[in-house]
Design a protein around this nucleic acid. Structure first.
Length: 779
DNA sequence: GCCTCACACGTTTTT
DNA sequence: CGTGTGAGGC
């Protein structure tokens, strides 16, 4: 009895057919991850393939981690040598070694969406275009789609000839690309594009990777774009041992350039390809699968397949319509709470999925009221919070200083009295000499007409110089702490806005992450840390051990499964979104339908669909009909219950909620700042919820599992920041500091969540610092 | 140079 | 409704 005997006939075929191209059409829940992991095991154990000759590409880091774990368990030895990672991580790894061959520096930085916007805005200004008319978003999406299709600047220009608007985009594209190059930066798309460019221009580099990756597997293949396809094609060209796994019915990233032709035309590029279909679903009940099939059937141009399951019967899919989105949220939260208490359901077995991130808020509020522990995946990424970006910009500048966007971001944070006029002079100086902004700062004495600002710039340069010098002898975490302390960042955040405390807690989380990073990586360089940070997705940080309900978009839910799934906001105009409803292309609606299919097929045992008659969107009340996707499910497959079309006990009970709601919704300006470390929202700012946190006494209240509520109660979970209960030193004591050496404590002020300590250092003089960051030791 | 206030504008979805 | 931006006053 071998591990392969547990596979069905098709799965086994996919595992055993190791040589040559294979297109594996794997329906939802058909065990494709199982096939991939067993295939890797088979290659290593039975075929004698060296683990390092195998490359497996997944969609998210989380999926990569899981795959590696499973391979680890299957193969005794060498699993850690298999490359399992995302497109982006793999490419960055390659580019770090070789990008100098195509004219970048190997120490390149990675720009996120925010940085891209900053650059494009500057481009628009430089091109003397009216920013009122030309939005950076439009240019950026034109640039991004061009890159997805591997269209170079010159190719874009050629195609744009004669078209005014296109020509403008072409100019913006060129200018944008040149700026990135000058800053030695790559955007997300470049990471793929530049790798393809490298392979095309340097045959010897390509050859070395072709030799290295003799067996290649690509998961979620339906979501690859043209650039990614070309990358894979190049790598696989020599040995042609390429196995792609996908499901055209689950292609949901067209907006990001995913090219469904990659799957439909695979056999054209690889005529010798074996096509294997996995059609047995091991995940869902027949009832759920019937609903999924009923919906997806309405799409045209699919690869025909019929999913079936051995799990006959099952509970009918439920549908409930409510008068308002509040009632919808209440129903979901209340029911989850009830199931947890009465039926002993684990919170982690349950997910609430929705179309847009904005829907999370209402659900969240309600979860808190019901005392249901939850996590929100996505929304605003942890690393795009302004306080985090500030610190990262400091780190980037310390690391290289070539990134003008980063330098510009921090030159006046905190306020140093360096304003626009000064900056423009410095930028002009830099531009004329073809150097970076930071290099210009280093030559500040040569810049004319700066007046008093020159001294301010000089001390900024000195500050960075000190950080650089300190870098070699400290960990990333220590460096961050040093920066925070030196620039007085905590105090800056404290009175930046109402969310000072939340922001400080976020910075603290960053330090915790840096500490953890050092623990898991032998050579934890600053550059690697920055890279890691740039490439994480929110879903990557979801911890399966957390016993919480997950709230997330349908996109984030791809690849996951849950015993119980709530699909919320099934309304025409929301899901499918109004864009798709009003689009003249049937394609857009079909993509939404595939999204619905993905959502439905996440459920193993229980699926509940909900919708609301009214919903507030952008301050406006919208009235939406029930989603066409619900209507596509035959009534006999649905249990529509009493809430359908009528006022119910549920909705009547909700009026109390409506009254309480007013104080809930006012002033949640802090919502953004209040996410936990992982890009997973752990709590809401006090303004929204603090007065509301009265978890019912009869609810199970698992204190340790409910980060959100701990946060609300003012309990910080950060390891580093935690305000000490009592200090180990007091006024008059001699203390030592990591950087300043020894000194005497002059004064201690108790502040809301920390102590402010004034120390007179023997060498460095008098400093005021926060106890939690300073880590003073009594002598 | 910095702060405050008023107003316009908009979101699908994300590596 | 919420955020980001721009004008105007200090």
């Amino acid at each position: 009895m071998s591990i392969y005997d547990t596979l069905n006939k098709e799965q086994k075929e996919a595992v055993l057919r190791t040589d040559g191209p294979v297109l594996l059409l794997a329906g939802a829940g058909s065990g494709k991850t199982r096939v991939l992991t067993h295939r890797i095991a088979y290659l290593i154990d039975e075929m004698g393939v060296k683990p390092w000759n195998i490359l497996a590409i997944t969609f998210t880091n989380k999926a990569a981690g899981e795959m590696r774990d499973r391979v680890d368990r299957l193969v005794g030895f060498g699993a850690d040598q298999v490359w399992v990672s995302t497109f982006h991580s793999s490419c960055v790894r390659i580019l770090r070694r070789y990008i100098d061959r195509i004219g970048y520096d190997n120490g390149f930085t990675i720009y996120d969406a925010d940085d891209q916007k900053t650059v494009m805005k500057a481009v628009i200004r430089r091109l003397n275009l009216d920013p009122k008319i030309y939005k950076e978003r439009n240019f950026l999406s034109a640039v991004s789609s061009a890159k997805d299709e591997l269209i170079s600047v010159s190719e874009f220009e050629r195609r744009a000839a004669g078209d005014y608007n296109r020509s403008l985009q072409a100019r913006a594209y060129r200018e944008y690309q040149e700026t990135l190059r000058a800053n030695n930066a790559l955007d997300f798309d470049d990471i793929i594009v530049k790798t393809v460019e490298l392979f095309r221009n340097c045959p010897e580099v390509l050859d070395s990777y072709q030799e290295r990756f003799q067996y290649i597997m690509v998961d979620e293949y339906q979501d690859t774009n043209t650039a990614q396809f070309e990358l894979v094609r190049l790598l696989a060209e020599k040995y042609r041992n390429l196995c792609v796994v996908g499901d055209d019915d689950q292609s949901i990233y067209k907006f990001r350039g995913a090219n469904i032709r990659n799957i439909l035309d695979f056999e054209k590029y690889f005529p010798e390809a074996a096509v294997i279909r996995l059609e047995q679903n091991y995940r869902s009940t027949q009832a759920i699968l019937d609903a999924a099939n009923a919906v997806i059937r309405n799409n045209t141009g699919r690869k025909e397949k019929t999913l079936w399951t051995g799990r006959m019967g099952g509970e009918k899919v439920r549908f409930r319509q409510f008068d308002s989105a509040y009632e919808e949220a209440e129903y979901i939260a209340e029911e989850i709470a009830r199931k947890a208490v009465k039926k002993g359901m684990e919170y982690r077995d349950c997910a609430v999925l929705f179309r847009t991130n904005a829907q999370a808020r209402l659900l969240e509020e309600r979860m808190i009221m019901e005392g249901v522990p939850y996590n929100v995946v996505g929304g605003t990424n942890f690393y795009s919070r302004l306080e985090i970006k500030d610190i990262l910009a400091y780190l980037k500048t310390v690391d290289s200083g070539r990134d003008d966007v980063a330098v510009r971001r921090i030159i006046n944070v905190p306020r140093r009295g360096i304003g626009n006029a000064t900056l423009e002079k410095a930028e002009e100086f830099a531009r004329l000499r073809g150097i970076g902004l930071y290099s210009a700062f280093e030559r500040v004495d040569e810049i004319e007409g700066l007046g008093r600002a020159a001294a301010k710039i000089r001390s900024f340069v000195e500050l960075i110089r000190k950080f650089r010098e300190a870098r070699s002898r400290m960990t990333v975490a220590e460096l961050i702490q040093l920066i925070i302390e030196q620039i007085g960042y905590e105090a800056y955040l404290q009175d930046y806005d109402d969310d000072g405390e939340d922001r400080i807690a976020n910075v603290d989380e960053l330090i915790t992450k840096a500490v953890n990073y050092a623990k898991t990586h032998e050579e934890a360089t600053l550059q690697e840390f920055l890279e890691e940070v740039a490439l994480v997705a929110d879903i990557d940080n979801v911890n399966d051990n957390d016993n919480r309900v997950l709230l997330m978009t349908l996109h984030s839910a791809k690849g996951l499964e849950f015993p119980c799934v709530y699909l919320a906001g099934l309304e025409d105009g929301l899901f499918p979104g109004y864009m798709a409803v009003n689009s003249d292309s049937i394609e857009d609606l079909e993509e939404e339908r595939r999204l619905a299919y993905v959502g439905i097929t996440r459920a193993k045992d229980e699926l509940i669909l909900t919708s609301a008659r009214t919903r507030m969107i952008r301050g406006e009340t919208q009235y939406n009909p029930v989603s066409r996707f619900v209507r596509e499910i035959p009534p006999e497959l649905l249990e529509s219950g009493s809430a359908f079309g009528r006022k119910t006990a549920d909705s009547r009970a909700a009026s109390a909620f409506t009254d309480r709601r007013r104080d809930v919704s006012q002033g949640d300006s802090g919502a953004r700042a209040a996410r936990g470390s992982d890009g997973v929202a752990d709590y809401r700012p006090k303004a929204i919820v603090r007065p509301k946190v009265t978890p019912r006494a009869d609810k199970p209240f698992i204190a340790k599992g409910i980060g959100s509520l701990n946060q609300l109660a003012g309990i910080s979970r950060g390891a580093v920041y935690k305000a000490p209960e009592a200090l180990t030193y007091s006024v008059g004591d001699r203390v030592s500091h990591m950087k300043y050496g020894e000194g005497k404590v002059i004064k201690i002020d108790r502040e809301e969540r920390d102590y402010k300590v004034t120390v007179n250092f023997d060498k460095a003089g008098q400093k005021i610092m926060y106890a939690s960051f300073a880590k003073l030791k009594r002598l």
